[in-house]
Amino acid sequence: MKVGLFIPCYVDQFYPQVGIATYQLLEKLGVRADFPVKQTCCGQPMANTGCEQDAKPVYRHFVDTFQGYDYVVAPSGSCVYHVRKHYDVVEQTGAVQHVRQATYDLFDFITSVLGVTELPGRFPHQVGLHLSCHGQRGLHQANESEMTPVRDGQLSRLLRSLDGLTLTELSRNDECCGFGGTFCITEEAVSARMGQDRVQDHLQHGTQVLTGGDMSCLMHLQGIVRRRQLPMRVLHAVEIFNVALQPSGTSVSTFVPQSTTAERV
């Protein structure tokens, strides 16, 4: 099985530890992923701004980069959703069709392709899961409150399988965080308010570590947590799994908030 790793542009530049954890977690699960260095971005930021036409060369570059792989895996439901759903505007060559259906969100890949639904390991903290809308409503990785009262999904199952981990029960289980790509700039006021409300829900219900499968939502929420200096750590879920599955000896205590003051730049 040839697996290509897609690390979204902003993760590559600002959250390398998420990329590293993705690589290492896959390795622990027996998958040696390859990272083709000519990759850039999936094109979503342009397309969501209305510039789908301008994004076409980026789409072609993505397909060109990944067409030789059996699976393309990314720690970001949002990018995956974009490739699958919106790469319909370029000519549907064999390569394009292959890449569209071979691109997986990391946790979908772990659950559906590798068939892993439980992970051994320990993470004795209260964890609040932020569901990304593209992962949940777009890729159907979790149940939706619009349809059913049952709160279940791939990522919450994997998290629950860790020893000692408690998941936070939120008032609003799947409200959008307000990131929304360029929305976070063009509609700054509403975006910030939405993020503040999400963070508040977690704070009120005891979240120590705020996590999710999409670093873009988390970047936005983390920005608010750090601005308000809240006692909450923000981590991509892959970081949690990678540390929980660490061969013994590595301490996890560095992952809990140490004081009420989050560190500053």
Partner: peptide
């Protein structure tokens, strides 16, 4: 206005990988 920017790491993922 309401958010901190991410902390900038020394190295990108691709630097680490390479």
């Amino acid at each position: 206005k309401a958010r901190e920017l991410p902390e900038a790491p020394k190295q990108s993922f691709r630097d680490w990988y390479q």
